[in-house]
Amino acid sequence: MFSRCRVVGCSNPARAGTEDGLDTRFCRPHADHYSRHGSPYRPSYGAREMAPYRAAAMAWLEAHEDDAYVRNAVDRVATLLQTSGPHVEAFRLRGLSPQDRAKAAWARLRRAAVDPRRMVAAWLAIEMIIRDDPQAERKTEFKRVQAAKLIHKMASGTHKRWGEGANVKELHVYPRSRGRVLRHIGEALEEATELLVQHRRPDLPSNAET
């Protein structure tokens, strides 16, 4: 019943057919890929691919800052930041639920004073690149994970430094960008930008303008 991974062309057994887990759909490599990227086979968009879309999205937001739907999206993201709870150091995330880790990510963004417009622009950029990609993965989960990965990188983790001279010590801890936490972040961002996308998607810059 669980003899093969569901990804076309993969001959590996699904994890449930081995001693490696209970996943009835994918083998270990494709399960890991799905966890990190939101698709078992489609890779994430790279930084170079995303850069012109992110720049175009931010420029569009700035040009339409008085638009009611733009203000609504920015305000709703700002609310996510303000209601995310106390800041949690990255090295204290172990043991927290995915939902609490997602809240901690929003709290890190708040602590880093990241402009809410950058997060709205991240979602719009994903909308735009998927629209322009003829081979895009168009499932909602992929879109959520791709946007979440962008904003997850805006809060760079926890960095500590103590001591002086030759005795100086540093600690750098970065939260893992994978799993259900990305789904929670992406879903919250999607809900915050829902009205903006619903009413202004046709007005977003085209590929030729990026």
Score class of each variant (00 low, 15 high):
101 R>D: 01
142 F>K: 06
95 G>T: 12
139 K>W: 03
147 A>H: 08
109 L>C: 05
77 V>E: 05
143 K>W: 05
172 H>I: 11
143 K>Q: 02
125 A>T: 10
119 M>V: 09
182 L>A: 07
80 L>W: 08
78 A>V: 11
114 V>D: 05
137 E>P: 12
165 G>Y: 09
93 L>I: 01
166 A>Y: 10
91 F>L: 11
81 L>I: 05
89 E>G: 03
81 L>E: 14
152 H>W: 13
128 M>F: 01
95 G>H: 09
157 G>K: 02
115 D>R: 03
145 V>Y: 08
117 R>A: 11
85 G>K: 02
116 P>Q: 07
125 A>P: 09
166 A>R: 15
88 V>S: 01
125 A>R: 15
123 W>R: 12
86 P>I: 03
73 A>D: 05
145 V>E: 04
108 R>S: 00
154 M>E: 07
186 G>Y: 13
155 A>E: 03
115 D>F: 09
183 R>T: 15
100 D>N: 04
185 I>S: 01
112 A>I: 01
176 R>Q: 13
174 Y>T: 10
148 A>V: 03
166 A>T: 15
166 A>K: 14
138 R>T: 13
77 V>G: 13
72 N>K: 14
184 H>R: 09
196 L>K: 06
185 I>D: 09
75 D>P: 05
182 L>P: 04
84 S>W: 04
68 A>K: 15
126 I>C: 11
137 E>K: 12
174 Y>H: 07
88 V>C: 02
136 A>H: 03
73 A>P: 05
131 R>F: 08
109 L>G: 11
109 L>W: 10
91 F>V: 12
